[in-house]
């Protein structure tokens, strides 16, 4: 290792840690997409990951719920701990892992089914019981995603008839319905207009009380508005990590400074 992690301005947070990565490396075939990421993500707070396109922040996010497993030539080295236990054991139940670590994608991706069936999809997968209680889960999840009031009279309507912002909140409701502890959000607002973006950001601040949220964003204002912790990625390396205020107001690495001041990226 030419440049050890300890030389870097990486301040691990105090308090309860939800996710921890140890020497995490990700390869796509021979290409090294992530180099030696050591980071601790605090429980029930919002952690933002920023950096220019192709810096590895989305790839990192996909290591946390093992979505990279779906890519044929992706290979992970090192470890990721969730509540202290490795998620890369040979006998890790990946379906159960993804139940605990939900993900919201860049473009809203509702299934071509009714609003109700979209939210009920997860509970039905995992063998949910009676109809009444399923209805309750759907309502609770839609309320949790601040969508209930807009759709409660049209639950049988196709989810594809919703606006982009509503579809993204539906995606969040769908994730909440399986009862995760962690929400991974991969640029959840990049396809939305400012009003819809504002609603999602408000929602994130509400959800923070109960969920650990990790958000990838290329919008630095968004990172500074919603997050308590920020990590800056560049070329597959975690350059700087610490409190959001610290990263934006007093960055320690010159490259972080250049990036948050908009000098590149």
């Amino acid at each position: 290792m030419s440049e050890s992690n300890t030389d870097r301005p990486i301040e691990q947070p105090e308090g309860e840690i939800k996710i921890e990565t140890r020497g995490l490396n990700l390869f796509y075939d021979a290409f090294r997409a992530l180099t030696d990421i050591n980071v601790a993500i605090p429980a029930r707070q919002i952690t933002a990951l920023i950096g220019p396109s192709g810096c590895g922040k989305s790839s990192f996010l996909r290591c946390l719920n093992r979505m990279n497993d779906l890519i044929d030539d992706a290979r992970v080295e090192g470890d990721v701990l969730l509540d202290g236990g490795s998620i890369y054991e040979d006998d890790t139940d990946v379906a159960q892992l993804r139940k605990r670590v939900g993900m919201v994608f860049q473009t809203p991706n509702p299934f071509p089914m009714s609003i109700y069936d979209n939210v009920a999809y997860g509970p039905r997968l995992h063998g949910f019981g009676g109809r009444d209680s399923l209805g309750e889960v759907v309502e609770k999840s839609l309320r949790g995603a601040a969508l209930w009031d807009e759709v409660k009279d049209n639950l049988r309507k196709s989810a594809l008839d919703l606006s982009g912002g509503q579809q993204q909140r539906l995606s969040i409701a769908r994730v909440l319905a399986v009862g995760p502890d962690v929400l991974l959000m991969d640029e959840p607002c990049s396809a939305l207009d400012p009003t819809a973006t504002f609603r999602i950001e408000e929602l994130m601040l509400e959800l923070m009380e109960r969920y650990t949220i990790v958000i990838v964003t290329h919008n630095m204002y968004q990172a500074s508005r919603v997050s308590q912790h920020t990590g800056f990625f560049l070329l597959g390396e975690l350059i700087e990590y610490g409190s959001t205020v610290g990263i934006f107001e007093n960055p320690k690495d010159q490259r972080t400074d250049d990036y948050v001041r908009g000098r590149f990226g």
């Binding site: 719920n65 979505m67 779906l70 379906a95 159960q96 892992l97 993804r98 139940k99 939900g102 993900m103 994608f105 473009t107 991706n109 509702p110 299934f111 071509p112 999809y121 997860g122 997968l125 995992h126 995606s171 769908r174 994730v175 399986v178």
Partner: peptide, 13 residues
């Protein structure tokens, strides 16, 4: 579309 498969996998399917 691939994104529908990803949505399903991400929900633990």
């Amino acid at each position: 579309p691939r994104r529908l498969r990803e949505a399903s996998f991400a929900l633990g399917a």
